[in-house]
Design a protein around this nucleic acid. Structure first.
Lengths: 222, 222, 222, 222
DNA sequence: GATGAATGAGACTTCATTCAT
DNA sequence: TATGAATGAAGTCTCATTCAT
């Protein structure tokens, strides 16, 4: 439990307001005045806490990114096996965006294409976050769960790209009120990543009686 | 062959300039004056051809989308089999963005998150484009090349999302000069979409002698 | 005779207004809006002609300095002898400030203590102007009209410093309406510069008739 | 010796800080916050001691002016003869500015052209100071050391104007570190004020034999 | 058809100053 | 006494857009 000073509390208040305002109207269509009104303070007060509109923008996602990373790390500890972890990661990615649509909006629709943001410390945090994902994939390759010719960076890009694409559409069409319904059911993406979409002709065989005479012990799924 | 009137030529000139300027500086950081200078006309002339800065922006991608769609359609005619067509689609998507980085920049970094753009006719063209991709996937399902439980919209999203994610990073980090080198080698994405990343343990079985006694023809995976 | 374009005319109009406004309220207490109102245009128009308030300020004295220098050069051509020229210079200095009190105000009360102004081209013009004065003094030394141990830069400083001091007081106490009355009668300054203020005790001797029989031409004071 | 209360000490501290800050950045470019930081107190504290930024500014030179006047008075007591006193005055003027460059800067570059300052008590002190100088000159006229047609106010103006002009240039070009070297050697100014710069042709006569036959009593220079 | 000239609206930002503690 | 917090008022400057030529 942290006890926040008044100053910190006010700062957080401004950040929350800015997050909402920038989400709703877009960063460049929003004014400091909008944020001030939303917060219930004067324009000037905003500048007491943030030196510029841009600094305010860049300050918004920090907490979200940290929180998301902590949650992910925490959950991953409960999961064993790369396959399961990958599924957990995808689930977390979707859920976090869905639970934090303002954060999602600012991250995906404003900051993602902002070059200056790439020079901030917060962006470094984001890269750390990405690293967690890549590490899981790398582990899977080493443990033999994933194909040995897998490019972990590439798989990560596909996962993030897919989720972001879907979240952006969700945001663009207006996030539905019913938040119990997931944006994207995790399993389709998970299955695609795992097994691909091509029908495996050999599967037909399973309808037949076969006699298999194993020579070693390591068979998997039935 | 179309013979363009002077008016049309001038219009295209302005569009090309705007594409470049908006790409380089971002839409909101660019001024009509920048575009006018790049075109070599006066600010006012821009307004002779486009009623507002936004209309100018929205007019930029039309030709690109049409061209890309035509090219895709044309190429698909040469390819038979969903699997091959999917690969062709992915290849075309990557190549077109890479060959038209200004178009890519504006499409992916400005328009993709612009709600008003979604109400334009050009956006309808884009949806047509997407439909072409979905149709290929649907065909693949019907023909039995792709798994029957595949959600074609979802697979399309994964493909587009992945490609866009990678193209955006390419744009953000500064498109390298050497354009002969592809942004993303098509096959990794294609293979992932087709076969997934999970190692198929049954493959090991191929090392063993097996006896197969077929009974009927239409088995599906459970 | 020069025919000024509309653009030049408008520019001059703004300069004149700015000169007046900055004089009356001081540069830093004046707003662009004040200048715009005085000119009868919108604020924005000011920025069409000058890129910033400071550039506007620095642009004001150029014409004045050039004009004053031309007038001085012109007058000096009519005068022979350093002594007479010095008197002409002092007269011109006083008269120009008196005839152009706005110019005087901005030059002496705003620009004189502005370090950035010292980096402008206009300041170079001013140094040229100063040079004209120093040259006259140097000539006087060479011709033998002025004492040979005179430091021309120093004499020039005394002349300018004295005149400026008096003009500043005139400005500060509010330039009297009656402009026919000179700020400073030239001759007191001229006489002081020439002969000093100390009573020459030897002068008493001149109460006598004397016969002088020169022997050579190049005597110097002991 | 005065024993200063804490309050007075703090006030002096603020004045010293303000003197430095206003000197370095200029009055209008300085903020109360700058002064507060330099002093090591909060902005609000400044207002405990001075009712406004302007009052703070106007309060700065009082002590300096009083001190300079006391020093001048004190020194003049040691000197007899107007000529010598004038030289002493010029020397003191230069030395005091040089020893107190912050004071010089604020006096000459900010207050000198501030009309409101002319309504303060401190400005009255300054006029007293000026009067001391005028009085010395008047005495010189009465005692016959100075020409009888000398305008004492005018001579004073020339002295102050010359010194100020030179000090301002010294300040503008950045006061050199070596403070042992005087800004302006006193004697050139003193000599100029005393004897002028014109070569006295009659001096030549002293090299010759002359015959003098007095006739009447009232001759002056021609 | 093209444009030079002008502008209204509004954005960001600064800072002297006050108030409550 | 000292100050942390807050703000009202104002200023510079930008830019999409229009109008008259």
């Amino acid at each position: 439990m942290t006890v926040k000073s008044l100053k910190e509390a006010r700062r957080d208040q401004i950040l929350k307001s800015a997050e909402k305002v920038f989400s709703d109207k877009g960063f460049l269509n929003s004014t400091i005045s909008d944020v001030a009104k939303e917060t219930g303070v004067s324009d000037t007060t905003i500048y007491e806490y943030f030196s510029s509109k841009e600094e305010l923008l860049f300050s918004i996602p920090r907490e979200g990114i940290e929180l998301s990373k902590q949650m992910l790390d925490s959950h991953l500890n409960y999961i064993s096996g790369t396959t399961n972890k990958l599924r957990g990661m995808i689930y977390h990615l979707c859920k976090f965006y869905q639970d934090n649509p303002y954060f999602a909006s600012i991250s995906l629709m404003t900051l993602k294409t902002n070059k200056k943001f790439m020079e901030t410390d917060t962006y470094k945090d984001l890269k750390e976050y990405y690293k967690t994902m890549t590490d899981v994939i790398k582990e899977g390759i080493q443990s033999g769960e994933l194909k040995s010719d897998t490019d972990p960076y590439f798989v990560r890009s596909v996962i993030i790209g897919s989720v972001e694409f879907i979240v952006i559409r969700w945001l663009m069409y207006g996030c539905p009120e019913d938040k119990t319904q997931p944006i994207l059911s995790v399993d389709p993406l998970f299955k695609l990543i795992m097994h691909g979409t091509k029908k495996d002709k050999r599967m037909k065989n399973f309808n037949f009686k076969i006699k298999i005479e194993p020579e070693d012990e390591d068979g998997e799924e039935a």
